[in-house]
Design a protein around this nucleic acid. Structure first.
Lengths: 342, 342
DNA sequence: ATCGATATCCAAAGCGCTTTAAATATTTTG
DNA sequence: CAAAATATTTAAAGCGCTTTGGATATCGAT
């Protein structure tokens, strides 16, 4: 059933039917009722492509997810998108998902812009000195970044958590507990978030007068295996760390396994603080959470980012929107005072 | 830059330019070259909505992901979609993602069908007696199900793994190792896959002459917490199980935590077999995998499902396609002969 | 009854593309 | 060299919607 058929059936013009359905004021309330009932009855919906052509809008938001060469699909993307989709369904938008190898990223953005298939995009996983910001500005495609650039954070819209502060505080807590050998198990530090977290970690050690050792800093995809390997490696060092600071729950699972394997007990022999994105299938709460953690819901961030983008699309000349989410530190069972081994 | 502008610039008709770009044979090779170069130079791409309107195809596939009331976003969806998107990008399709509460599912499918915004859909997480199959057939929307119906598996297309066989074999292995109290930690059994797995488990116990105890069957969202709670509960029973069969890696992490908490050692005191969907951030391989597991790559399933759907769309009168993936059992460190406790 | 204002409806253009039907060039053939 | 065949190009219609500009109906006030 299309508009023509529906309006023929009703004995009305396409104009009137279209206006009735789109709640334009210049149509009689009785007719509007009649039209809406008929539409419901035949479950008529305006064809997306046709109305998009006519209005110049696609009512679709693109999410472009970078895949690196290791082909790891970071679970936080799924959770972020679950949040974003809440906003879209509320406001009548659709979500288009594209996964792209880093090396063809620029051409994909160009393609998306010229095809006009989306009204805006969410940029995931910004890197250090990410070229996508300038590109998108040039392409005139509305966008919101989940994260930030490192050099410039004023002339575009973003939502981010306070990575640096979170890791500063976490590091400081470990130092206050007496730890001086603290191992950082971080995400890939070509990514902005991981770079910021490292900054927080290093700053805190500096401020506390502790040395920063390259041997205690690991970075890579936040997989269970990488967490395990990093922690195993660190624990085998002659001057092994007594605490770990881990950038994700998933990575921390590997760290915990390594600790167990070394015959140590997490929370007693070794302290661990994680950043917890609050993935729905890894709840870290309850009276005493498993892990001491800095916490920030990535699903929530997804919803806010999406709303922000829709606002920008509605009001194009508004100045950029930014939002910095806090990631409070909550104490769980995985931390304790340093224990002198011997 | 649109088609009119491009063809004006070239001094050709829109027809010829369009044909040149779409590789129609009736255009001179020289002109084609000229057109393609100009298109590249101005980075012209046909507007998606316009060409969609003209051809009647949207070149996008919809993925509809059910969210239950617990709001858990199952990580396998992300991984499946990562696979599917590979197929789409190869064949020029886009991916539209919709998350939907179970109660509004039917209306969403109807809406999608009448809006015509997708050429086909992938159906995720089929339930026992799922009404969506009949609905989609009625709506004439091409679809592929990741999973199957329980009563009928002939007149529609699906891709599934052999859930029943996998869990039959896994159960049998545990029995062969001497276990007789085997606890099943399953997904929500209103879902088809979990229902089939339970069938395999029950059949194997029956065949081996062992009793099936309701106390040893848990089902629910496959979260870490649920795995932990189920296993903790089971281990506290007077006649506690000596082995666990767990439907996912994530759930098994919880089970493992409960085993540790009970002061037991996985692989020695307690055996565990999981189903491993081969999530990219939870590799369970190496010389001796952590977990004995039935394995089947869900990312691979995603890619195959997508290709299957695209084939169906290309050749609508072809009979339904089906594919049953095997999930071979591989031995890891988490299983061993039953140990008499005392 | 008549006029202007207001409410309600409609015909037709246009969004940017593909494709049908037809026109024009170019080759081939006898 | 003309006719027939083939190669190449084009004008125009149409996809299903929104929206502009106008038409028609209705109403209160004169």
């Amino acid at each position: 059933m299309n508009l023509k058929q529906l309006s023929d059936q009703l004995g009305l013009s396409q104009t009137t039917v279209s206006r009735a359905l789109n709640n334009y004021p210049e149509v009689n309330e009785d007719t509007r009722e009649r039209v809406k009932n008929a539409a419901r009855k035949h479950s008529y919906r305006p064809n997306t492509r046709a109305s998009g052509l006519a209005t110049g809008k696609s009512m679709t938001i693109g999410h472009i997810i970078p895949m690196n060469s290791t082909e790891v699909f970071n679970p936080i993307f799924g959770e972020f998108i679950a949040g974003a989709s809440r906003a879209y369904s509320k406001r009548g938008y659709e979500l288009s998902l594209t996964m792209v190898q880093e090396d063809s990223e620029e051409s994909i953005y160009r393609e998306i812009a010229s095809k006009g298939s989306v009204d805006g995009v969410i940029v995931h996983a910004p890197r250090v000195n990410d070229s996508r910001i300038a590109l998108l500005q040039q392409l005139q495609l509305p966008f919101v970044i989940h994260g930030r650039d490192n050099s410039n954070e004023t002339d575009y819209s973003w939502i981010d958590m306070n990575n640096r502060r979170a890791f500063y505080q976490a590091t400081k807590l470990l130092v206050d507990l007496g730890h001086s050998r603290i191992c950082l198990v971080n995400g890939s530090e070509s990514l902005n978030f991981a770079w910021r977290r490292r900054l927080g970690y290093v700053d805190a050690l500096d401020d506390e007068g502790l040395s920063v050792s390259a041997d205690l800093m690991y970075s890579g995809d936040l997989t269970e295996a990488n967490g395990y390997n990093a922690a195993s490696d660190a624990l085998a060092q002659s001057d092994a760390p007594t605490a770990f600071l881990v950038s994700s729950y998933v990575g921390a699972l590997g760290v915990r396994r390594a600790i167990h394997n070394a015959g140590l007990v997490m929370g007693k022999d070794i302290s661990v603080i994680i950043h917890d994105d609050e993935l729905s299938y890894f709840q870290n709460d309850g009276d005493i959470p498993q892990f001491t953690a800095t916490r920030s819901s990535v699903r929530d961030a997804g919803e806010r980012a999406a709303m922000m983008l829709l606002d920008i699309i509605d009001q194009p000349d508004k100045s950029p929107l930014t939002e910095l989410l806090d990631a409070p530190l909550t104490i769980g069972a995985s931390t304790g005072p340093v224990k002198k081994l011997m």
